[in-house]
Computed example of a mutant assay.
Amino acid sequence: MRALPRALPRLLAATVLSVALVGCGEDASEQPSGSGSDSPSASDPATTDASEDASATAEYPRYVAIGDSYTSAPLVPETDPQDGCLRSSGNYPSLVAAALEGTQLEDVSCAGADTTSLIGVQRTFDGLSRPPQLQAVTEDTSLVTVSIGGNDFGLFSTFVGGCAQVASTDPEGSPCTDVASEDGPEVLAKIEERISSVVQGVRGRAPEARILVVGYPQIVPQGDRACPALPIADGDLAFARTMNRGLAEALEEGARKGGAEYVDAYALSEGHHVCSDDPWIAGKETVEGQALAFHPFAAHQEAVAQEILRLLER
């Protein structure tokens, strides 16, 4: 619960990060790109030739996916437990790439990532490090999806996990709102600025790429009651809902300012919040083999992939 207030001194560093993200487009192109397990082996001429032929006719020959756990999709089948980023082969980047003929995917999304993970080394839960995600974006990249920002300033963990944790202290009151609501608008504004800078950083590295910013889904229900899967105090529901919607709007406005297209996952997931009869997001309990607690199910990833493909057809 102290994640958001404690993060406020770091707000002064947000402008520095914004400048760095934009600057990456100018001088980072000399760095090597990410490993990309989907890339063909240089030692196999037949595979390389076939891949080059397919890419030559593809509309989006090279696709890079940037994001956090809502992109990597932990426990959505199939997730490699040895992968510190908990990246699923059933996440929306994989589904999009599979549907686009000749498209080679480099998915660098990683659980726990925030916008600083785009320009700095990220430590995964298993203690290993991953290179900056923006490093994967190169001049020949033709499609980039970006979904990040929810972990910045501890925002997501505050309005979902944090609010749920303190609910038992005052279930009919507003213990979460009382602590964090005053700082929420300022944090959302900073995330918006960071997303705009992320888009500009991507554009600087891949001037011809089509860039789509993917928003966050609806997690918190409407009304004045939560549910066992999302045990938030009655008085905190309005705050949690405002932050959920505000985060989505911050990404949308950041995309607009940066000149990218926006995929409205919040609108797409209406009626599929945690407390619904058909949730696209798991509740407080991890569902083994399906979704990590407070993370997307396969249905969410499939819906986002379909929406991205629909937009790409335009």
Results as ranks from 00 to 15, higher is better:
Thr124Asp: 13
Ser109Val: 08
Phe159Ser: 09
Gly184Ala: 15
Tyr63Ala: 08
Leu86Phe: 01
Ala164Asp: 12
Pro81His: 05
Gln133Tyr: 10
Gly84Leu: 04
Ala99Cys: 07
Ser109Ile: 09
Leu155Tyr: 13
Leu128Glu: 09
Arg87Asn: 10
Cys163Pro: 11
Gln122Lys: 05
Ile191Gly: 12
Arg62Val: 11
Ala99Leu: 01
Phe159Trp: 14
Glu182Ser: 13
Gly150Arg: 03
Gly162Lys: 08
Ser88Ala: 12
Gln82Asn: 14
Gly154Val: 14
Thr79Lys: 02
Phe159Glu: 09
Glu193Lys: 14
Val146Met: 02
Tyr70Phe: 15
Ala99Asn: 04
Arg62Asn: 13
Glu139Pro: 00
Ala111His: 04
Asp140Ala: 12
Val187Asp: 05
Ser196Pro: 00
Asp170Ala: 14
Gly150Cys: 07
Gln135Asn: 10
Ala98Asn: 12
Lys190Cys: 06
Leu134Tyr: 07
Leu155Pro: 08
Leu105Tyr: 08
Glu192His: 01
Pro77Ile: 06
Ala54Tyr: 02
Pro132His: 04
Gln104His: 02
Thr103Cys: 11
Ala58Lys: 04
Ser89Leu: 06
Asn91Trp: 01
Pro185Arg: 05
Gln104Trp: 01
Pro74Ser: 11
Arg87Lys: 07
Gly162Leu: 07
Gly154Trp: 10
Tyr63Asn: 04
Gly102Ser: 06
Ser55Ile: 00
Ile148Asp: 14
Ser197Glu: 05
Val166Lys: 07
Pro171Thr: 00
Ala180His: 06
Asn151His: 10
Ser55Leu: 02
Cys163Phe: 03
Ala113Ile: 00
Ala164Glu: 15
Ser142Ala: 07
Ser174Ile: 00
Arg123Cys: 00
Gln104Asn: 12
Ser174Phe: 01
Ala111Cys: 07
Thr116Cys: 00
Glu192Cys: 03
Gln104Leu: 13
Pro74Cys: 07
Asn151Trp: 10
Ala58Asn: 06
Ser109Asp: 07
Ala164Ser: 14
Gln104Glu: 13
Leu75Asn: 09
Gly154Ile: 12
Phe159Pro: 09
Asp49Leu: 10
Val166Arg: 07
Val146Asp: 05
Asp107Gly: 10
Asp140Ser: 15
